[in-house]
């Protein structure tokens, strides 16, 4: 049975999770990938407010396909997470509750999850058609000029994922070394 997570996420929801657990996320998640992270960090470095709510929030590493008629969103699976490794720890420190992507990441992300009581979740890569059916509403909230890389606010219902890095330093990936 999948554990139900409701955004905003808090420590009570996140700390019992263990690597390998199935979860389903409901509420608001924001899409952001390479280019959007670059823009967000320009704002952070300038001390300016961000266009998304980080507190207990969720960033989904996803650049969806265009929305066909009659759907809330086009195909919308995860992209590979390691490309955002240099950004994730600072966002966790600022209050982000979870990131969703695919694939293993650098050890810094796992350490940040432990330090700031956050999680890294993986969705099934390549299952974009199925995952898009869990999106009930979508709108671009920043950087429309980036096209598929724009930041979108998604309302999701029971978006399925697996806990990859938990709050105590465990990893679901068999080739990851234990944290010291």
């Amino acid at each position: 049975m999948a554990t139900q997570l409701h955004v905003p996420l808090d420590k009570d929801q996140l700390s019992p999770l263990r690597a390998g657990d199935s979860v389903e996320i409901s509420g608001v998640v924001y899409t952001a990938r390479d280019a959007a992270h670059g823009k967000l960090f320009e704002l952070l470095d300038a001390g300016e407010p961000l266009p998304i709510d980080l507190a207990g929030g969720v960033i989904y590493y996803c650049g969806p396909a265009p929305t066909p008629p009659g759907s809330a969103l086009g195909s919308a699976g995860p992209t590979t997470s390691y490309r955002m490794d240099s950004f994730a720890p600072r966002l966790y420190e600022l209050g982000l509750g979870a990131t969703i992507g695919k694939g293993d990441r650098g050890i810094g992300v796992r350490e940040a999850c432990r330090q700031f009581c956050c999680v890294y979740l993986v969705a099934v890569g390549g299952a974009g058609a199925l995952l898009s059916e869990r999106v009930v509403a979508a709108e671009v909230v920043a950087y429309p000029e980036l096209g598929p890389e724009a930041i979108r606010r998604l309302e999701v219902e029971r978006l399925p994922a697996i806990v990859a890095y938990d709050t105590v330093g465990n990893s679901v990936f068999p080739h990851d070394d234990p944290l010291q």
Partner: peptide, 20 residues
């Protein structure tokens, strides 16, 4: 999930994966 995803994409004629 992947088998089910393939069914959905074929039935609805939407992209299997958002990375086309």
């Amino acid at each position: 999930t992947l088998v089910e995803n393939a069914r959905i994409a074929a039935d609805r004629r939407i992209a299997l994966c958002q990375d086309c």
